[in-house]
């Protein structure tokens, strides 16, 4: 058995992928972190406090892991889902009724709920340990933006099953946009934006119209939310997560007393 492992380890293929001996001694344990693309997110060594569960609660890591789960299950779900009035609801029901491992939808939905909770708890912990204080101020700001984007991801995904729960939650949620000051057609000050007696802001040109792509939640909205949910927001989130992690390293390292 061990000779087989030895054979694999010595093979050219293995050595071309992992260019260092197994991480059994101290030197190679450092080398593995430095040379592996995925691991080099980490520093070579960390403070004991930085990985103590009772101190960090691991909520940031859990959030990131949930993001990966959402990406994976989300891509899988996209293979069976068409964002049109005709098919959206039927496709989701088919996931439940006829698709093998339709549980992917459950994992996607519960993972999304869990992600909202863990991202809040992550913020809670970072606040309570005062880890936003200098030099980590700006990373906290990025974190708040990521929190908003997480909520938006969940919100845009809420519409996609196209059932009563979805459409009315989005109607209630997006109706607030009509009251945006200046930019909503029922918001204070929109009357000021007019040219020669013509209102620039009407129910067909305000913030809500931009969000929904129509005057009511309909097929255009479904399409918009689908693209936001699957493409636009995930790209921005991925970028910001990269910056967030990078700055954790640069701004004083993984959480620890400064």
């Amino acid at each position: 058995m061990s000779s087989i492992i030895e054979y694999i380890r010595k093979s050219q293929i293995w050595r071309s992928v992992f260019r260092h001996p197994a991480p059994y001694d101290r030197r190679n344990r450092a080398v593995v972190v430095l040379t592996n693309f995925f691991l080099h997110l980490h520093p070579v060594s960390v403070k004991k406090g930085g990985i103590a569960l009772s101190y960090t609660w691991c909520m940031g890591g859990v959030t990131f892991f949930l993001f990966l789960v959402e990406a994976l299950t989300g891509v899988l779900l996209m293979f069976y889902y068409r964002p049109t009035l005709e098919w959206a609801f039927t496709d989701i029901r088919a996931l439940r009724d006829v698709t093998t491992l339709g549980i992917m939808r459950e994992i996607h939905r519960w993972g999304a709920h869990a992600m909202v909770i863990t991202v809040w708890l992550h913020m809670y912990r970072v606040f309570l340990t005062g880890s936003y204080k200098p030099p980590r101020e700006f990373n906290w700001v990025i974190g708040v933006i990521l929190l908003v984007l997480t909520l938006l991801l969940s919100f845009t995904g809420y519409l996609l099953p196209w059932d009563q729960l979805a459409i009315w939650a989005i109607t209630v949620g997006s109706n607030m946009a009509r009251a945006t000051p200046f930019l909503g057609h029922e918001g204070p000050g929109f009357q000021l934006l007019n040219i020669g007696g013509y209102d620039l802001i009407t129910n067909a040109s305000d913030a809500r119209f931009l969000l929904l792509g129509a005057r009511t939640v309909g097929e255009e909205t479904l399409n918009r939310f689908y693209i936001m949910h699957c493409v636009a927001i995930p790209i921005v989130v991925s970028l910001l997560i990269a910056i967030h992690f990078w700055r954790v390293r640069k701004d004083g390292g993984i959480s620890q007393p400064l």
Binding site: P23, R26, R29, A30, V32, V33, L39, H42, P43, V44, S45, V46, K47, K48, G49, I51, A52, Y55, Q256, P257
Partner: peptide, 14 residues
């Protein structure tokens, strides 16, 4: 938390 400032290697601990 200051008392936990001893460092350990990322591999394997983290």
């Amino acid at each position: 938390e200051k008392e936990l400032s001893e460092t350990v290697l990322t591999w394997p601990d983290l």
